[in-house]
């Protein structure tokens, strides 16, 4: 594979918020081990980092907004301080909000996080996706005719 651009976007302040978001999205009942969540944060950082400065700034700003968004509903705690169930409930409220920008906070990160989380082969197998195998294209393969000599030799052998 050609060498890829490498840089980082998320710092130590952003990572706990993203991890808390991932936990609410994918591990409401503790399905995902903590180490995987930590590694997942790195994967997300790797994904968003090739984007332009402005987009990366926007994503970091959105993370800041998510962190303090519980204040909008008079919850005087940061997002990562909420319990997992409270976070899920909070994200649902944001996604349903009639304030134009609030659903976008959830949707933007949900899109990126989900795409990367379900890229994992174990997760894909768990949801019934078989991987690269495909069958339909084989149903109309060209038929190869046996050569005449081969037919003749088979007849002679029989």
């Amino acid at each position: 594979m050609t060498k890829d651009f490498a840089r980082s976007t998320l710092n130590a302040r952003h990572r706990p918020v993203l991890r808390a978001l991932a936990e609410a999205m994918f591990s409401p009942d503790g399905e995902v081990v903590p180490e995987r969540l930590d590694a997942f944060v790195d994967d997300v950082d790797g994904f968003i980092s090739p984007a332009s400065k402005t987009l990366r700034f926007g994503l970091v700003l959105m993370l800041f907004a998510i962190r303090w968004s519980p204040l909008l509903f008079f919850r005087f705690r940061t997002f990562e301080e909420l319990t997992v169930d409270e976070r899920v409930h909070h994200l649902e409220r944001l996604e349903r909000s009639k304030v134009k920008q609030l659903p976008l906070l959830v949707v933007a990160y949900k899109t990126v996080l989900t795409m990367i989380f379900y890229e994992d082969e174990t997760e894909q197998r768990a949801i019934g996706y078989p991987g690269h195998a495909r069958e339909r294209w084989k149903t109309a393969l060209p038929v190869v005719q046996p050569r005449r000599e081969a037919i003749g030799s088979e007849e002679a052998a029989s």
Binding site: A24, M25, F26, P28, D29, V84, V88, L91, E92, E95, V106, K110, T111, V112, T114, M115, I116, F117, Y118, E119, Q124, A126, I127, G128, Y129
Partner: peptide, 24 residues
């Protein structure tokens, strides 16, 4: 790809997981 489709599913947490598990 299934992970890209899943990204647009409604809901968060358990409801989202419920739908993703029905991908087939």
């Amino acid at each position: 790809p299934v992970n890209v489709l899943a990204a647009a599913f409604p809901g968060v947490g358990r409801e989202h997981r419920r739908l993703v598990k029905q991908m087939p």
